[in-house]
C-alpha cells in the first residue's frame, strides 16, 4: 500500500487542533502560550529546513557529505548538551563532550549500519541520516541527564568526594559513586521505554515505516535494532563524555574547576 500524500493545505488544517491545548493553557493562566507559539514555529521551520536538506542529501548521497552532516549534528548536540546541563561552554567541556558523542555515534553507526544492516554504499543517506539522528537525539537526552547529575551531584556533595580522597582514594576511585549514579539516572528512561515499548506506545520509527508501506514485521525488526542502537549509544556516550571531560575539568589538586558551573 502506498502512503497517502499530505498536501500543504491538509497539513495547515492539522495546526487548527492546537487551538484546544492553547485554550486550556490560556484558561489556567499557565503563561505558556507564547512558548507554545514559538515552539510550534521553530518546530515547523526546523523540520521544513531539514526536509529540504534531506531531499538534497538523499539525492546527492555522498559518504563525505553525509559524514559532514553527522558532524554538524554532533556539534549542535555538543552545545545543546552543555547548555541543557546548566554548565558553561568552556573548552574543557566542549571538546571532550564532542569527542565522546562523535566517537560513540561513529562506533554505533559502523556496527549497526555497516555490520548489521550492511548498507549498499558507505553511510548510505537513506539509512545513515535518520538512524544517526534518532540515536543522537537520545544520546543528547541521556548525556544531559548523566552529565548534569554527575557534576551537580559532585558540586552539592563536595565533602563526600573530599572525604573519599582523604581516605586515600585516587581521583577515579573517589568519583566512582558519582559516576555510577549518573549512569543509573541516564540509563533509566531508555530502559523504561524498552520495557514498555509496544505495550504503552508504538514508536515513531516503526509507525513511520508502517505508514510508508513496510510490513509490520520489517518495521519491528528495524525498531528492535534501533532500540539496541539507542541504548548502546546513550550509555557509551554518557560514559565517554564523563570519562573524557574528567580529564580536563579538575585542577591538579583533584578539585573541580568551579568555572564550569552556571550557578556559583
Amino acid at each position: 500500500m502506498d502512503i497517502i500524500d499530505l498536501s500543504w493545505w491538509q497539513l495547515s488544517i492539522g495546526f487548527l487542533i492546537l487551538i484546544i491545548p492553547a485554550a486550556i493553557l490560556w484558561w489556567f493562566k499557565t503563561g505558556l502560550n507564547k512558548q507554545l507559539a514559538i515552539a510550534t514555529i521553530r518546530m515547523t521551520l526546523q523540520l521544513l529546513f531539514v526536509g529540504y536538506y534531506l531531499e538534497y542529501l538523499f539525492e546527492y548521497d555522498s559518504a563525505w557529505v553525509n559524514t559532514a552532516w553527522i558532524m554538524i549534528m554532533v556539534v549542535v548536540a555538543d552545545f545543546a548538551t552543555i547548555d541543557r546541563s546548566d554548565l558553561n561552554r568552556t573548552w574543557s567541556l566542549i571538546l571532550p563532550i564532542f569527542g565522546a558523542t562523535f566517537f560513540g555515534i561513529i562506533l554505533i553507526n559502523l556496527f549497526f549500519l555497516e555490520l548489521v544492516i550492511q548498507l549498499r554504499t558507505f553511510l548510505e543517506a537513506q539509512y545513515a541520516i535518520p538512524i544517526t539522528g534518532m540515536v543522537l537525539g537520545n544520546c543528547l537526552r541521556s548525556n544531559v541527564i548523566g552529565i548534569n547529575d554527575f557534576y551537580y551531584n559532585l558540586k552539592d556533595n563536595k565533602e563526600r568526594y573530599q572525604f573519599f580522597l582523604a581516605c586515600g582514594a585516587t581521583r577515579n576511585e573517589a568519583l566512582y559513586p558519582f559516576f555510577r549514579q549518573a549512569l543509573q539516572k541516564s540509563a533509566n528512561p531508555t530502559l523504561a521505554s524498552m520495557a514498555t515499548i509496544g505495550l504503552v506506545s508504538l514508536p515513531g520509527m516503526m509507525t513511520g515505516q508502517i505508514l510508508s508501506g513496510s510490513s509490520p514485521m520489517t518495521a519491528i525488526q528495524y525498531q528492535i535494532m534501533i532500540m539496541l542502537a539507542i541504548f548502546s549509544g546513550t550509555i557509551l556516550s554518557v560514559y565517554l563524555a564523563i570519562l573524557f571531560s574528567n580529564r580536563f575539568v579538575f585542577f591538579e589538586s583533584d578539585m573541580i574547576d568551579p568555572s564550569i558551573f552556571k550557578e556559583s
Binding site: 556533595n157 565533602e159 563526600r160 572525604f163 573519599f164 580522597l165 582523604a166 581516605c167 586515600g168 582514594a169 585516587t170 576511585e173 559513586p177
Partner: peptide, 29 residues
Amino acid sequence: RKKTAWLPQDLNMGENSVRELITIPFSFK
C-alpha cells in the same frame, strides 16, 4: 592523604548505609 584519617565535623554520606560508608574506603586500592 594516604597517610591520613579525616573526621569531618558533619559527615555527609548521602543515601549510603553505615556498612557501605565503612567498606567503601577499603575498596580503594
